[in-house]
């Protein structure tokens, strides 16, 4: 099927343009940046799309807790459609503030209670830096034992992306949740050092539990991540392009390309 991407916008959304651009570059047929008011007023139908992206930013100023107001709006005004969207095999990606929104909608939960959240960085301040990320189920991808590799196909074991957030520390309700995420192959990205070993600050920029930078839901189709793949689509966006040889396309590009390909091949 042709991929049709809806990038949600609201007051305080920042990264909609570059996220849309990333999907366009990755070959999506339609990319619309849509204000949520238009969905609520039914001027636009969610079901017309097959990929939904919630981009980064400070939705509603993040004045309560990051992403909370946006999440509530989705839950109370759109929950039926959202559930239908996921159940019909479509894809959702939430990046940075979008990840914060997703954890607060419950779409990434284990059970019927919010099982994880993104809290204030250990450094207690906003930080912008490039990080190394380990593709957590990389080995199992190769042996093809997991189905949760929709988003990370064709990526090397370690990639680099920038993070920029104040509330990105991934924490779970209790340890059993982390174990469950791990057992089900739902941990997608973990902060690591240059060699791929889990390491402390500044490698882990926010103090996230188990260095978790991104997770997916049980179907593997809903992805939430703190780092910004849309900021590394092209070589010249990388922090070290003047110092080392890099591919023309950035690691982030493949994440969007994988989504577009998945729709093409599976829907």
């Amino acid at each position: 099927m042709k991929s049709k991407v809806i990038v949600l916008r609201t007051a305080g959304t920042n990264c909609d343009k570059e996220t849309g651009y990333a999907f366009k570059t990755a070959g999506a047929q339609t990319v619309d940046l849509v204000h949520i008011n238009r969905l609520f007023k039914k001027e636009v139908k969610l079901s017309d799309y097959n990929i939904m992206a919630i981009p980064g930013g400070f939705s509603f100023g993040d004045d309560i807790s990051a992403g909370k107001v946006f999440a509530n709006k989705l839950i109370y005004q759109l929950s039926g459609e959202l559930k239908k969207f996921v159940d019909s095999g479509k894809l959702i990606i939430g990046i940075c503030n979008g990840f914060q929104v997703l954890v607060k909608t419950g779409l990434l939960d284990i059970d019927n209670e919010q099982s994880q959240t993104l809290s204030f960085n250990d450094s207690a301040k906003f930080e912008c830096r490039w990080v190394n990320l380990k593709i957590s189920n990389f080995k199992s991808q190769i042996s093809n034992q997991q189905t949760t590799n929709i988003w990370t196909k064709n990526l090397p074991e370690i990639i680099q992306l920038p993070v920029a957030h104040a509330e990105g520390k991934f924490i779970t309700r209790d340890e059993s949740i982390t174990d469950e995420l791990e057992e089900n192959g739902r941990i997608m990205f973990q902060y690591c050092d240059e060699e791929g070993d889990l390491a402390d600050y500044p490698y882990n920029p926010n103090g996230a539990q188990e260095n978790i930078a991104g997770i997916c839901d049980k179907t593997g189709r809903v992805l939430g991540m703190m780092p910004h793949p849309e900021r590394y689509i092209m070589k010249y966006q990388h922090a070290a392009w003047t110092a080392k040889e890099l591919d023309e396309t950035g690691s982030g590009f493949h994440i969007f390309k994988n989504a577009v390909d998945y729709i093409k091949n599976n829907l």
Binding site: F126, A164, H228, Y232, A243
Partner: peptide, 21 residues
């Protein structure tokens, strides 16, 4: 100070304020 400011948003900063390893 520099790290508290998002210098990457919009994805167009090809030469950044902090450089090298």
């Amino acid at each position: 100070i520099i790290r508290q400011y998002d210098h990457e948003v919009q994805g167009q900063t090809v030469i950044k304020p902090l450089q090298g390893k």
